[in-house]
Amino acid sequence: MSRPDSPESVRDRAEAGHPPAEHTPPPRRPWHRAAALLTLTPLLRYAVARHAVPPGTDRRTGCDACGASIGPDRPWPALGPSARCAECGARIGAPPATVELAAVAALAALLLARPPAIEGVAAAWWLAFAVPLLFVDLAVHRLPDRLTWPAAAGTWLLLGVAALTGTGPAPWLRATAAGLGLALFFAATTLLLGARGFGIGDAKLALSAGTLLGWYGWSVPVLGLVLALTLSGVVALGLLVSRRARWSSHLPFGPYLVLGTLGALLLVW
């Protein structure tokens, strides 16, 4: 019997009126690209360790216990999954393996949803800042400008590129208005309700989240906000029932806004 790619097989297919068999291209391997992107997690850990400090405090440059310096030039083991100082073994930044798991979840969402190329790049840019912001807010209840502003600016500009290369200005203008509208809503609660409202940092994060979601329609930012509020309400109720929080306790909202935004994106992609 002749092989499928042999000259005899090609001649037989031609005589039978069938086109020659084409070579199948090698399968794409997105998970290899994902593994390569995970090598960037030390930078995410560095952002968390650098900015997870109380307001008014200088950004962290070394281990709190022994003062050993940390940075991208010396990533291991302080900026690795173990998150331990190389000199004294004290924990630095986010808990061990948590940043890596969050990065894996974000990458899996992008790979499974497969949004259009530039939209996917915009979402990846936003997630690169949203992941460290989530951990910083959990640790010290703040969302630093050095992470929120680049997240908003980069997302807005990348969606502008998407508008110029095919979709036209309408989605980009809607995204701009949605981001500003959601940010103003968060800022208004701070002005009207004080400590009982959202923080200004939440408003800055909402600027980028609203821009990203507004690209897909006016209802999508509302969906993201509803998801975030629902998730935060469920968690707050659980903390109250377990007596791990009080009615007067202040809980960070940034992590829920990040998760609500990602959930809304997965529903529309």
Rank of each mutant, 00 (worst) to 15 (best):
P75F: 07
P75C: 07
P77A: 06
P77Y: 00
P77K: 03
P77M: 08
L79Y: 01
L79K: 05
L79V: 13
P81K: 09
S82G: 10
S82M: 11
A83K: 06
A83E: 04
R84D: 07
R84S: 13
C85G: 08
C88P: 10
G89H: 10
R91N: 09
R91M: 11
P96M: 05
L101M: 13
V104S: 02
A106D: 02
A108E: 05
L110A: 10
A113N: 09
R114N: 10
P116D: 10
P116F: 10
G120F: 04
G120D: 06
V121D: 03
A122C: 06
A122D: 05
A123C: 12
A124P: 10
W125F: 14
A128E: 02
P132G: 06
P132L: 05
F135W: 13
A139F: 01
V140C: 12
H141P: 00
R142Y: 07
L143T: 01
T148K: 04
A151E: 00
A152E: 00
A153N: 00
G154T: 12
T155D: 04
L157M: 14
L157Y: 09
L159F: 10
L159G: 03
T165G: 03
T167G: 09
P169E: 07
A170S: 12
W172V: 06
W172T: 08
R174A: 10
A175Q: 07
A177F: 13
L180C: 12
L180R: 00
A183E: 09
A183M: 14
F185I: 11
F185G: 11
F185L: 12
F186D: 08
F186G: 05
A188G: 03
T190C: 13
L192R: 13
R196G: 12
R196E: 14
F198Q: 09
A203C: 12
K204P: 01
L205K: 01
A206P: 00
L207S: 09
A209R: 02
T211F: 05
